[in-house]
Amino acid sequence: MINSKAEVKLIDFGFAIDLTLLQADIHMCGSPFWMSPEQIQEKPHGVSVDIWSLGIMTLEMMRGSVPRRRSKIKSMFLAATIGVTVSRDKKYSAHWSNELISFLTACLQMEPRQRSTASQLLQHPFIVAAATKQEMLDLLPLLFMSSSIGKYCSNSSTQ
């Protein structure tokens, strides 16, 4: 979530565990569409599952929906067996930048050890080129105003 002060707030820690006390967790719990292959396969896993989830969340924001959203079971099966690939050959991704595709690919590696770490992702060109906090502060009022105007226009057209 992001508030009107351009502060990012992390939410939904319903299945969170503290891995500082454990080396790895082997329980399969989480939200199906965002679970990593190793979680679905009930293999021991660590913090790289969060990188997978970040990749899925970013993909969801870009597409407007999670991959394979019609079936949780199918989504989990395919994530656990073939993963999630990102390319420019889909209608929704034809305009995506090389940096975005590279970022998603870095997050969505099937093998946890091949996924980028959070520190590596913070240095990724996709993140480095992201808007500054000041740029976000300048943009957010326009987004909120656009939303309000959109609601007003749809209410006016129904009357």
Rank of each mutant, 00 (worst) to 15 (best):
F103P: 01
I11T: 08
E38F: 00
L122N: 08
A16T: 03
S148Q: 12
A24Y: 11
S4T: 12
V84Q: 09
I11K: 01
E99V: 00
L19P: 05
A131S: 14
Q41D: 00
L54F: 07
D89K: 15
C29D: 01
S36P: 05
I82R: 04
L139P: 03
F15N: 03
H124F: 10
S116G: 02
V84L: 06
L122A: 04
A80E: 00
V86R: 04
M57N: 12
K151T: 09
I26D: 11
F13D: 01
I56S: 14
I56A: 14
G46V: 09
M145D: 15
A24V: 03
A129S: 15
L142W: 12
V84D: 10
I40S: 03
A24G: 05
S48D: 11
S119R: 09
K91S: 09
W52P: 03
L121D: 07
S119T: 04
L21E: 05
S65H: 12
A6Y: 07
S156K: 14
Q134Y: 12
K9C: 03
E7I: 04
P67W: 13
P44T: 09
L21D: 06
D25Q: 11
K91A: 13
L10R: 06
A6T: 08
S36D: 08
N98W: 00
I73S: 12
R70W: 08
H124K: 03
L140T: 06
S102H: 03
S31M: 07
S116E: 06
I82P: 00
Q159G: 07
I149K: 06
G46E: 10
M62G: 04
W96G: 00
Q120I: 01
S154T: 15
M28C: 14
W52N: 03
C153N: 13
V49S: 04
H124T: 05
S48R: 13
F126K: 13
V86N: 07
L142Q: 15
P67N: 10
L54V: 11
R115N: 01
D50A: 08
S4Q: 08
P125S: 14
L54K: 08
P32M: 02
T158H: 05
H45G: 02
L54T: 14
K74P: 02
N98F: 01
H45L: 04
A130F: 04
T117D: 06
W96P: 00
S31T: 15
S154C: 07
A106Q: 04
P32C: 00
Y152R: 14
G150M: 11
Q120E: 13
M62K: 09
V66T: 13
N3W: 01
K91D: 01
V128F: 12
D50N: 14
L19S: 02
P37C: 06
T81L: 10
T20V: 02
T58Y: 10
N155L: 12
C153K: 15
E42G: 01
I51M: 12
D18H: 06
G150R: 15
L22V: 02
H45P: 07
Q159E: 12
M61K: 01
I127T: 10
L137Q: 13
K133Y: 07
V8P: 07
W96V: 00
F77E: 13
Q134E: 15
A16D: 01
A130L: 06
D25R: 03
L140E: 05
W34R: 15
V84N: 03
S71Y: 05
L78T: 11
A80C: 01
M1I: 11
S36A: 15
K151A: 14
T158Y: 02
T81N: 10
M110P: 00
